[in-house]
Nucleic acid binder design. Structure first.
Lengths: 209, 209
DNA sequence: TTGTCAATTGTCAGAGGCTGTCATTACTCT
DNA sequence: AGAGTAATGACAGCCTCTGACAATTGACAA
């Protein structure tokens, strides 16, 4: 099924991603031109734009893949789990597999550095947030399906997902600003933040954590 | 205090905003060129970019103002309120004043239509989300100050704000997709969604709303 | 009022992102 | 091997955005 043509395309795409990310990480996103990326892989600029509809897309490609990965893991869960627990446990279970999936395209190291670039580059951060919002909507539909409620009538699926992903994003952001950017610390920070979701909403913040 | 020079600038800026928003609303954001906007106000394209650093900025100017407005209202609140209550009540109290403040720049009608354009225009939505994130960070600092905790150590301010603003955004999004886009319905939708924050997070969704 | 200074603007040139078109090259399939 | 299709390269061109410099206009003091 995988003809030479398709393998070649795959390789070009991956090469573009890795070359682009390396340039972004070393000299910054905005001061890297598409011409440079194309030249690094020895294709024309026009070809670059046939693989990625814009410069943002190549920067966010791996991130988007990770989010799809998480979404699909949620869908594969037993339907009788309480919604919040489902989101939380998926996060925990899926972590290692994500690392493996990423490595098939780009070195994990490079990806983690790229995550930090995304956080500090306004147009990338903006695009990333928008992509996350699309994924949120898919999660809403899935949670609604699992619980048998209609998301257009009952606000709870949207509210739950909004709150949960909001906290996840915050954790990711905090993690990205540390100097030890490893998968392990990312996991810990995220777990800690999610655990605070309940306490943060209660009226009384009396005793600190 | 307000010399002729300054008044003139203000007028040019407002004219650019209104002209831009009218064009965006009628013919779409992406198919409106900066040249068209500049021409509508009879200034050069270069002058447009002296008032707004990019095309997005003129589209989001009023939105950003509204968010600043909310933030400042939060800061003006008594410090002994529980954090969640503070965010919730501010929302309720500030609503009418926002309408008045907007009218000083652009017709309220136009602004509400512009809100819908933002939601359905990818680059605008992206930039809007990013701006909201910056405001979130300011809210985090304010909540941390009021409650006397350190946001770099205690995750609760970030978690609370992330959850709260996440839900607010969701409400805004849902509202924007209705056909009766009035301030009043926006208020109602938002209030309803915020009220569901507690119930959505509990394990048992047993009885529907 | 008038002259000087500073802020605002217009004009021009140019880089960079992105798209349409068309000829050329590279695979696929019979 | 040869027809058919997909991928690519090479232009040309639009639009966003920036730098530089000259022209204009308001502010303010003499």
């Amino acid at each position: 099924m995988t003809g030479l043509r398709e393998r070649k395309k795959q390789r070009t795409r991956d090469a573009l991603i890795v070359a682009a990310h390396e340039l972004f990480v070393t000299q910054g996103y905005e001061s890297t031109t598409v011409d440079q990326i194309a030249e690094a892989v020895d294709v024309s600029q026009r070809t670059f734009f046939r693989y990625f509809s814009n410069k943002e897309e190549v920067a966010l490609f791996v991130q988007d893949m990770v989010e799809r990965f998480y979404y699909e893991a949620v869908c594969a869960r037993p339907a009788d789990e309480p919604p919040l627990e489902c989101l939380r446990r998926t996060l925990n279970d899926v972590w290692d597999d994500v690392g493996v999936a990423v490595e098939e395209i780009t070195p994990l190291d490079l990806h983690l550095k790229m995550c930090q670039v995304i956080e500090v580059t306004p147009p990338l951060l903006a695009a990333h947030l928008r992509h996350s919002l699309l994924m949120e909507e898919k999660l809403v539909q899935e949670i609604a399906r699992r619980t048998g409620v209609d998301a257009e009538v009952d606000p709870r699926p949207r509210v739950l997902v909004a709150a949960f992903t909001g906290v996840m994003r915050t954790a990711a952001r905090q993690w990205s600003m540390r100097n030890d950017a490893s998968l392990e610390t990312a996991r810990e920070v995220t777990r800690d933040y999610i655990a605070q979701l309940g306490p943060a909403l209660t009226a009384d913040w009396g005793r600190a954590r």
